[in-house]
Nucleic acid binder design. Structure first.
Lengths: 253, 253
DNA sequence: CGACGCTTTGACACAACTCAACAACCGTGG
DNA sequence: CCACGGTTGTTGAGTTGTGTCAAAGCGTCG
């Protein structure tokens, strides 16, 4: 209960403040927290999407295994993250899901969750918001892998990770714990583990970022952010600037 | 109205059959269809997410521009596709959106859409399903770019595209129209346009796929699918096989 | 007609991968 | 206690896939 309050509820609250009644309903719908060991697979691609998982503590990852033995990690989940909503909607999971460290996890069955969505618009809104946020991160990872060099990619990943962890109080601006092995980073960022190692050395020698013994230290956040290309071309300041670039007979804005 | 019925309604219907009343409500909420010319930008990254766009005819793309002048296309939209729901939920668009060909597009404002979601659970379900499907495609693209070679990537992309187009009756099993330039393919698949050209030649010489004058011909679907690694390791037959790989005290399934 | 966008090709450079080897660290069991 | 295998990190040498640069062919459209 403590964990539940601290992780999911805290995160959902940050979008749509939930009443104590809504929190109670959520808490009734969820399973008891379960401890799972590192490596434990909780969901296999192709399985029926019967429930969502909520990470209360530890790290987990969503990924797809390919025929040639490689894998692509879609995303890492940390405390407060909800996984599998898409699988519930599509009825079958389109990715696998495993604990990356020892973790504490609970579940909510599809049926009661859908009922909550129907009865409590704010709970629905909060989940949708959270899932939209995850999707935005997936799109950002697409940009990472598609258009950034390995160094930028890794830099970008850690900047983003730092922000995520800070949101839930698990990082301070200069450093945080990160139990991801170089193999996992490689599978998430579309690189080989060996190259990840080389890039990490490079970032260390440039005095940007040090990864050592499961601890990440951001040496120079400004330089790192700049290096990663963290902001995009517009930075949001030129809204609608080009909206009428090509002519059209009607106003779509 | 005709188009609206044929595109969005048809697609939504394929998931959650909508009553004529629900279709009417949807149709009342949407704007009149608007013709936009190729290249027209409809939404710019960072803009307020005030509405969703529905493609009725033609092709469009969602993308992010990077500081160094490159871009990453997140997805292509075709008739029946809905874009911008995420932007509405997160309140600001996390990507830009443009017409890739001359196109016919209508919009639904955020407020009436949310009201529809509240009043008509099946409309809500249909939109959520559609957006979950899009998200699954984004994840698949991530796998493409992260773990497949350029040739596999392109092969995979066209197999997936063929299936999408067939669903809305715009492709037959052997061929379909595709107005995407090699530059657009490159930006979607994390490649350079020049390399896309080389790979297309390669696929042609292997007698797998011919792309010529905006027309894609699939020469050998079986070989192409095999080549692309379209199916993943499990194919869904071994549900739950590994769910108990590492021990745990409680049942999460 | 010239300008422009898209495709095609070649030569070359370089980022990232593979293979191979070794070091450091861990928990386990003899 | 130490030996052990397994996992992770580190480094080097060589290979290859893909990007870059440059140039030419070709439609189309104004």
């Amino acid at each position: 209960m403590m964990h539940f309050q601290n992780a999911l509820a805290k995160k959902l609250n940050s979008f749509a403040p939930l009443s104590s009644n809504e929190l109670l309903r959520l808490s009734e719908a969820r399973s008891a927290p379960v401890s799972v060991r590192k490596g434990r697979e909780l969901l296999h691609e192709g399985q029926l999407g019967k429930k969502v998982f909520i990470v209360l503590d530890g790290w987990a990852s969503s990924y797809k295994d390919l025929r040639d033995g490689t894998r692509q990690i879609i995303s890492f989940s940390i405390a407060g993250d909800c996984v599998g909503l898409r699988g519930v909607l599509l009825e079958t999971a389109d990715h696998s899901f495993s604990a990356s460290t020892d973790a504490e996890i609970c579940t909510i069955d599809a049926a009661p969750l859908m009922q909550l969505f129907q009865d409590y618009p704010r709970i629905r809104a909060a989940f949708l918001w959270s899932s939209a946020r995850d999707e935005a991160m997936t799109a950002e990872r697409l940009v990472d892998i598609g258009r950034r060099t390995a160094s930028q990619r890794i830099a970008h990943f850690f900047v983003e990770l730092s922000e995520r962890l800070m949101l839930i109080g698990l990082a301070d601006p200069a450093a945080f714990d990160c139990p991801l092995s170089q193999y996992m980073l490689a599978d998430a960022l579309g690189l080989s583990a060996i190259h990840v190692n080389r890039v990490l050395r490079d970032l260390r020698e440039r005095n940007l970022l040090v990864v050592k013994c499961g601890k990440v230290t951001i040496v120079d956040l400004v330089k790192l952010t700049e290096f990663a290309g963290y902001q995009r071309v517009d930075d949001g300041f030129n809204e609608a600037k080009n909206c009428y670039r090509s002519g059209s007979s009607a106003n779509l804005n």
